[in-house]
């Protein structure tokens, strides 16, 4: 019995499955019961939405090597598309609007990914930057997208699926969690198939990839499409489940950069890296700011506290990148590997 268990435990893939299962149990089972509204609303929901966006970007930039600075534009496309589909087609179920929104974002992503056939690296980044500004401008300029609302700020529709209402912090958290789990599983599956290997081949040496017969044009566009689909759905989650309001200014260049930083810190070319990076960049400042105002609230100006938290976060990012340039995920792997080898050597040398 123990040998079977040990066998299961020894296989890394099964171990990974079990770790994922444990996390799911915590996320679905423990957090809803023990989590405060603040934890659900202000920490976990934005963390999950941005992690999903980072997963999407990682597919494109980490695995396929196409640098994109237009992530927020695709998020905005998803959010506004979902809003418009929901508004103009009555009785459309939320899942269908989500899928259609993702498809719209994928279409825009493929459109702005076309320059990737000729441009590399830095120059491609500039063309995706054009996407960022263009989409933001279109959404502000043409009132049709925000239902000709005079102020251009639109309210997210209530979330309800199969008759269940997902209103309230817990409902929105569970909705976000489910969508993120499904799409992360899909992304994980993609990277372990031939498509994923094609992405990595194109990233590492495009000429060699072309020589061995990988259809580079199609694969690059596929990368843009898949990535933008996931990023578009993340945008819907960000606007509908977290902020409950959509305005083009919220999907600005700062947001694009934030997601790029998330995947760099977390670790390029890894699905887990998106979550680690988002945890550092999204959750950690909030915790710091809470701690800061709790410890020093009366003594210092809230603005000074805020600036000092940015300094601390910046220092931490620098330290992490010096210690492990491959991102947090590589750091985590090193730490757990060294721990497991220490325990192994302890067993072997009692």
């Amino acid at each position: 019995m123990s040998t079977i268990a040990t066998k299961i435990w020894t296989t890394p893939r099964l171990r990974a499955w079990l770790a994922a299962l444990a996390l799911l149990i915590v996320a679905y089972g423990l957090v809803p019961y023990f989590g405060t509204t603040y934890l659900l609303e202000a920490i976990l929901t934005p963390f999950l939405a941005l992690s999903l966006a980072a997963v999407g970007l990682n597919l494109l930039t980490g695995y396929a090597g196409q640098l994109s600075l237009g992530t927020a534009a695709f998020m905005a496309t998803g959010a506004f598309a979902a809003y418009n589909f929901n508004l103009r087609i009555h009785g459309l179920p939320l899942t269908v609007s989500l899928l259609l929104a993702g498809a719209c974002a994928a279409a825009i992503g493929i459109l702005f990914g076309l320059p990737s056939l000729r441009l590399r690296g830095f120059y491609l980044a500039v063309s995706t930057l054009a996407a960022q500004f263009f989409v933001q401008w279109v959404l502000t300029k043409f009132g049709w997208f925000s239902n000709n609302n005079p102020s251009g700020v639109i309210d997210a529709p209530p979330l309800s699926l199969f008759g269940f209402s997902f209103e309230g912090p817990l409902g929105r958290y569970l909705f976000t969690l489910t969508v993120v789990v499904i799409l992360t599983a899909v992304a994980q599956r993609i990277v372990s198939t031939q498509t994923g290997h094609d992405f990595i081949a194109i990233r590492d040496n495009e000429l060699a990839a072309r020589v061995i017969g990988i259809p580079v044009l199609r694969t690059k566009l596929l990368a843009f499409g898949l990535s933008s689909f996931i990023v578009g759905v993340a945008g819907v989650l960000w606007a509908f489940a977290y902020l409950r309001t959509v305005e083009p200014a919220g999907f600005n260049l700062d947001r694009s950069f934030q997601i790029v930083f998330i995947i760099i810190i977390g670790g390029l070319a890894s699905i887990r890296g998106a979550f680690f990076g988002a945890a550092l960049i999204v959750v950690f400042p909030v915790i710091l700011s809470c701690l800061g105002s709790w410890l020093f609230g009366g003594l210092f100006d809230s603005g000074i506290l805020d600036m000092s938290q940015r300094i601390i976060l910046g220092l931490l990012i620098i330290i992490f990148l010096i210690v492990e340039p491959n991102g947090l995920v590589a750091l985590w792997d090193r730490l757990s590997q060294s721990l497991s080898s220490i325990t192994a050597s302890k067993r072997n040398h009692p």
Binding site: T6, W9, V26, S345
Partner: peptide, 24 residues
């Protein structure tokens, strides 16, 4: 870096997984 486990070593994964879970 600590030496990685060689093939044949029995790595006690329970310990490392439980450490991971404890950390989480």
């Amino acid at each position: 870096y600590p030496t990685p486990p060689r093939p044949g070593d029995i790595v006690n994964p329970l310990r490392s997984t439980s450490i991971k879970l404890t950390k989480v």
